[in-house]
Amino acid sequence: MSSPLLEIEGLSGSFRSPNGALTPVLHDVSFAVPRGTVTAIVGETGSGKSLTALSILGIQPPTFQRSAGRILFDGRDLLTLKPEEMRGIRGRRISIVFQDARAALNPVFTVGRQLADVHRLHHGGSASRAMKRTIEALRAVSIPEPERRARQYPHEFSGGMAQRAMIALAALVCEPELLILDEPTTGLDVTIQAAIMELIGDLVRERGLTACLITHDLGVVAETCDRVVVMNAGRVVETGTTEAIFTRPRQDYTRRLLAASQLGETPEMIEA
């Protein structure tokens, strides 16, 4: 068994307000993301799940001040890297998909241009080759008529299509080892959500990706993820395999979160 691709050890920190007062928001956060798995970080508003994810890429808000901890990626502590070393990792080895894809894409460039630019940045080569790879990537995430779609602007994409394009960018154009998905289906309709989660599952399996899914939705987790990290109020409450978390939760908070997510449904009702 190889070492985990990502290990977060004892990450703690606070938000600094303009008057200098510190509000602790992360308390000794530790978990590991084994290679080739989809690991979910689950929590409600204010649990620190997104802040933890942003910290991995070094794109946390500037008011966040770390007081302790390490983030080991492939054995190296990302927090000790120089900005230019971090730029070599961000996008190229670790990439991220944000919640609102249409907001994450630049509205004044075509979708194809944005993906092709990123491709050239990471892999070099000619513009025409980059565009060819971009169109292949859009096709691989089941965007119909990728040649035409590549020439369109983000506002011409529906939310679901834009999220497919973002996944094409983060997973296929960047070809990272670790893909972070920060609430990738929040705000999308359930039929679109189901299709996006299937796409993510397929990409991870086919391409041997390691993924970290940040979500508040335990339903999405149950079907897609191998492991679960439950967070609450800046702390890791419990970690385990998805099966263990859903069938044998050890912590009271996990049990309550599960009960709230299931709304008193019985298994018979679901199978009906």
Binding site: V190, T191, A194, G219, A222, E223, Q262
Partner: peptide, 13 residues
Amino acid sequence: ALLSAAPVARWGV
């Protein structure tokens, strides 16, 4: 389609 797309927060469904 709608009902079958809704995720269920339960193991093994």
